[in-house]
Design a protein around this nucleic acid. Structure first.
Length: 994
DNA sequence: GGTGTGTGGTAGC
DNA sequence: AATCGCTACCACACACC
């Protein structure tokens, strides 16, 4: 198809060329183009004479299937901690019978035993009745008889038994949630440990670590020798005497024993040494996880705490502390995990259309604030106003508890403003590790409960659980009761497992209503709205704020206020909008889709888009793009620093891309630039202040996962956007329209290969990139050659593994760091700003194009020319003589042509282009020149240059063929381009010095 | 009508 | 010292055919 289209295109060009035109100059007599046939012969000879190794011979005898199969046997299975997937429907019945945690309708509260022991700081609100609180705190807890008043001996005995079984239950839960169901090494087997006072890590974390590693935990000291070890960070004088006969150790004993996977001698961590009152000097070693990553070079003044975007470790240290990054990363992981599980459980079907569903929307209450607060025994969640934030002034509040909210404090507010509302606000640090642990516990409880047919991850602390009601005994009351019971059970289990984190749950039969019910339930409550008449639904949602609807944010509320409600109320409710709007009005003011969506939401109904997650969860959760956004701490001085930064971003992205086994056909750069009037340094330290954003996307002819290629494209886009380096405040790179590599192998077989491939029509298996990369070095190279020979799309090798190249261009581009040094001399890397700013936008744009192209062109051309000892391609200062005379049309879409050209190059990269094709192509270019479409030619030249560069750097193409292409670009295209530029008087001059 | 690009809104704490 | 303002995805407006 490529050839036909190309031929079509070219013939169009030649037919349009009927008007008298200067014929294109014939190639110089000594051009390699003249040698097309003979050179091809030479290549063929060279190939056939190359000696084959035994290995290569063997490989060449295999058919495609066997070859790919052979490679794939080298796959290394990726290991990954996984949550247990929800029990298969078939297993449900059995589970339900055995599992004591299934709550049937109308649950009878079990006879009360001792209260479960949440930390004193956490209290349940009255919605959790005291009978609720006092029931057995874990499903497997020993059930003991009612307690008689004053029977303390019995009380403590029960309590001990209870705690023991609770620890057992927790150990299992932790294993399932955090370790893929496998046991942890029983490091603390036979140890009974008591924790005294405040410690780091805190009591809850130590408790967890001890029980998962086989130890038992004492919540109180009773009787001598009932504990084997006491953990404490420091001891009062009195305690020192009291504990002097115990093995008192620092918390590091726990953490370091775990790190070492064996119980370390406690004496090394003893807090009390033989001599009375003398404390063994503990060099407080932070836990291993807190140590700075070893690759961060400690050299010249590098400070792990300071953020410097020019340092190589910046991305990593920034991401490590960015809550938003963590949230996004967690979400992506959860989605990936879901897909994995969903595919594994192939029997899992989305609910049949029209099935009766109960949707449970489960969400921790002010998640970060609660978890962080529970890690610090000084604070009481229900009394102290608490928030999680990094700093004290202009740092953002990630989460605040309900006490703080009662002062008007909100998430996202700066701490300084929050303190004005609530002077006693306490700021707690993040505890990302514990957030993750609690999240896993939540998901484990949801999955392990067996209640739900599907558990859809929304975020780290939030999930939507789906229960099919169809099989249930009928009667709405019963369904409602069941949902109530399930909800209660889940909330209690999560509270216990997390040592005091509360979840709220909203339950209804649509996603929207479940979400609204959740909002209503918060904090620490539940709201079940199953099987309702439309009237009661309307009554229910009437009073809820419009903001609570999914997809309705500040902007949409503003629009509604302005155009529909005319600012009648400060905080409009769903009822307000419902009474004052119609479908038509909504659609006209908010857009078609948004209007329709909102209209349905106002009646509590899901729309097509938001219910897609139920109909086709796999498609809904499948990854379609991948990106990095940095809009904090961006302060650069020169374009070179930005180039390096872009390199690192692309490196990061392609690493992820590789892990996902995907390639991208398109990259988008988004630049965030300081507003002209905004101060250089905004109020927030290293913040971005007020900014404008600009974006630009570009496509690759062949989807890629090469960092170098992507990076080059992004740098080029950056220059086009023309942001002065010092004004850059944020940068984002997105890889769009991702495709699985394994899906591409089959598609990519070139049509013309079908003719000579006798196996035409038979599918051959996808080549596994991991497997390919796992091949031993020599074999890998031979396989690569073999694959290339067969035109099987071969996976690119990761840059780190690339052997030393023999291509100067490749070396040149490989040396990211050094590159700027060499280029700086010959070509200004940024255009003079003042000069540029005074030009008309179109001209600016064109010059930037030109600039970028020449930069690229020179990179591939210079090495060959320098071998000849001649000059390099150079760019004059781009002084347009008559800028006002030129009106460039906005860029045409050379996209199709660009693709054609790339595939043309791909197919002829070894043997060189055919002279006839080139002649036709010349005519096409001449036509373009005649029409004054210089920019179009520029774009084509740029495409060719960059694609040749790609081959030069990343494929084992024959240098001779590539050289012919480069010659063509230099000797015929660039002069055409120059001529065209001169003729159209565009002011763009391209000089080419030899 | 379709397709592609750039911009903007929203979600999670 | 401060401070860690991410990221996936959809929808829209507009341009071009």
């Amino acid at each position: 198809m490529d050839y036909e289209e190309l031929a079509q295109l070219l013939s169009d060009a030649s037919s349009l060329d009927a008007s008298p035109q200067e014929p294109p100059p014939p190639p110089p007599p000594d051009s390699p183009l003249r040698l097309y046939d003979s050179s091809r012969g030479a290549i063929a000879r060279e190939r056939s004479q190359r000696p084959f190794s035994q290995q290569q011979r063997l490989l060449s005898t295999l058919d495609d299937d066997s070859l790919v199969g052979l490679v794939n046997t080298f796959d290394r299975p990726t290991q990954r901690a996984r949550l247990r997937r929800p029990a298969a429907p078939a297993d449900d019945a059995a589970d339900a019978e055995d599992d004591p945690c299934i709550v049937t309708s109308s649950p009878e509260p079990p006879s009360s035993v001792v209260p479960s022991t949440p930390p004193a700081s956490s209290r349940l609100s009255e919605s959790d009745s005291s009978s609720d609180r006092s029931r057995s705190s874990s499903p497997t807890a020993a059930r003991v008889g009612p307690l008689k008043f004053g029977d303390y001996a019995q009380y403590f005995s029960d309590k001990t038994a209870h705690q023991h079984s609770r620890d057992e239950y927790m150990r299992k839960l932790y294993q399932d949630a955090l370790n893929g169901g496998r046991e942890y090494p029983p490091i603390f087997k036979d140890c009974t440990i008591y924790i005294n006072g405040r410690t780091f890590p805190d009591r809850l974390q130590l408790h967890q670590k001890i029980i998962i590693h086989g130890g038992s935990f004492k919540h109180f000291l009773s009787g001598k020798k009932s504990v084997t070890h006491i953990v404490a960070s420091n001891l009062t004088a009195k305690k020192r005497i009291e504990f002097q006969n115990y093995k008192v150790v620092a918390p590091a004993w726990i953490t370091e024993s775990i790190a070492a996977s064996k119980r370390l001698p406690w004496q090394d961590y003893a807090l009390i040494t033989g001599e009375y009152g003398q404390q063994k000097l503990q060099i407080a070693r932070p836990p291993a996880a807190a140590l700075p990553a070893p690759e961060q070079q400690p050299a010249d003044g590098f400070d792990a705490n300071s953020l410097d975007c020019k340092q190589p470790g910046f991305l990593q240290s920034f991401f490590a502390k960015s809550r938003l990054h963590q949230l996004s990363a967690w979400k992506a992981d959860l989605r990936a995990l879901f897909c994995e599980k969903y595919v594994e459980g192939a029997h899992l079907q989305p609910p049949p259309k029209g099935a009766r569903l109960a949707i449970f929307h489960v969400d921790f209450d002010c998640f970060f604030a609660t978890v962080s607060a529970l890690s610090d025994a000084r604070y009481d969640l229900s009394r102290d106003p608490l928030a999680v934030a990094h700093g004290n002034n202009s740092s953002e509040i990630a989460s605040c508890n309900y006490v703080a909210r009662s002062f008007g404090v909100k998430n996202g507010m700066w701490v300084r403003s929050a303190r004005r509302l609530c002077p006693n606000l306490i700021c707690l640090p993040y505890n990302f590790e514990q957030y993750e642990v609690n999240s896993k516990l939540l998901y484990q409880i949801l999955a392990g409960s067996g209640f739900f047919q599907m558990i859809l991850p929304i975020s780290i602390d939030e999930a939507i659980c789906v229960k099919y009601l169809d099989g249930l005994p009928d009667g709405d009351a019963s369904a409602h009761q069941q949902c109530e019971a399930i909800t209660r059970q889940i909330r209690r289990d999560v509270f216990d497992a997390t040592n005091g984190c509360t979840v709220s749950i909203g339950c209804s039969n649509s996603l929207v209503l479940a979400r609204l019910a959740l909002k209503k339930a918060k904090p620490n409550g539940q709201c079940v709205m199953a099987s309702l008449e439309q009237d009661s639904i309307d009554a229910f949602i009437e009073e809820l704020p419009l903001r609570d609807l999914p997809g309705v944010g500040a902007t949409i509320v503003d629009k509604v206020q302005q155009h529909i409600l005319f600012e009648q109320t400060a905080e409009p409710t769903i009822g307000d909008l419902k009474r004052n709007s119609s479908l038509q009005l909504l659609a006209s003011k908010l857009g078609t889709k948004t209007g329709h969506k909102l209209h349905l939401f106002l009646s509590g109904k899901d729309d097509e888009e938001n219910s897609r997650v139920l109909r086709d969860p796999l498609d809904y959760f499948a990854r379609k793009s991948i990106s990095v956004d940095i809009n904090y701490a961006i302060r650069f001085d020169t374009i070179h620093e930005i180039d390096e930064f872009i390199d690192r971003i692309c490196e990061h992205l392609t690493t992820k891309l590789g892990e996902l086994d995907m390639v991208t056909p398109q990259v988008t750069l988004k630049v965030t630039r300081r507003c002209e009037h905004a101060p250089i340094e905004p109020a927030k330290y290293l913040g971005s202040g007020e900014c404008d954003t600009f974006s630009r996307s570009s496509r690759f002819g062949v989807p890629t996962c090469e960092a170098g290629l992507i990076s080059t494209e992004v740098k080029s886009s950056f220059r086009m956007l023309g942001c002065p380096p010092k004004d850059l405040r944020g940068i984002a790179v997105q890889l769009n329209k991702l495709e699985k590599v394994s899906d591409r192998v089959c598609q990519l077989r070139l049509p013309f290969r079908e003719q000579d491939a006798s196996s035409a029509g038979s599918r051959f298996p996808a080549l596994n990139v991991n497997a390919f990369n796992s091949l031993p070095g020599a074999l890998k190279e031979d396989v690569r050659t073999e694959l290339l020979k067969r035109k099987i799309n071969l996976p690119p090798s990761p840059p780190s593994k690339r052997s030393a190249s023999n291509s100067p261009v490749k070396d040149y581009w490989g040396r990211h760091g050094k590159r700027t040094e060499t280029l700086k001399q010959e070509m200004p890397s940024t255009l003079d700003e003042d000069f540029m700013n005074h030009l008309p936008t179109q001209i600016q744009r064109e010059i930037k194009w030109d600039h970028a192209i020449v930069k690229k062109a020179s990179s591939s051309v210079r090495n060959r020319l320098s071998r000849k000892g001649t000059g390099v391609l150079n760019l004059s200062k781009n002084r347009p003589s008559k800028p006002e005379a030129v009106k460039f049309q906005s860029l045409e879409r050379p996209l199709g042509i660009s693709r054609l050209i790339k595939s043309w190059i791909d197919d002829t990269i070894d043997n060189g282009p055919h002279i006839d094709d080139l002649n036709l192509f010349d005519k096409y270019l001449t036509k373009l020149a005649a029409k004054g479409k210089t920019h179009h030619i520029l774009k084509i030249a740029r495409t060719m240059s960059s694609h040749l560069e790609y081959h030069s750097s990343f494929t084992k193409s024959n240098p001779q063929g590539r050289q012919e292409w480069e010659e063509y670009l230099l000797i015929r295209m660039i002069p055409t381009l120059t001529a065209s530029a001169a003729k159209s008087d565009s002011g763009v001059q391209v000089t080419f010095d030899l």
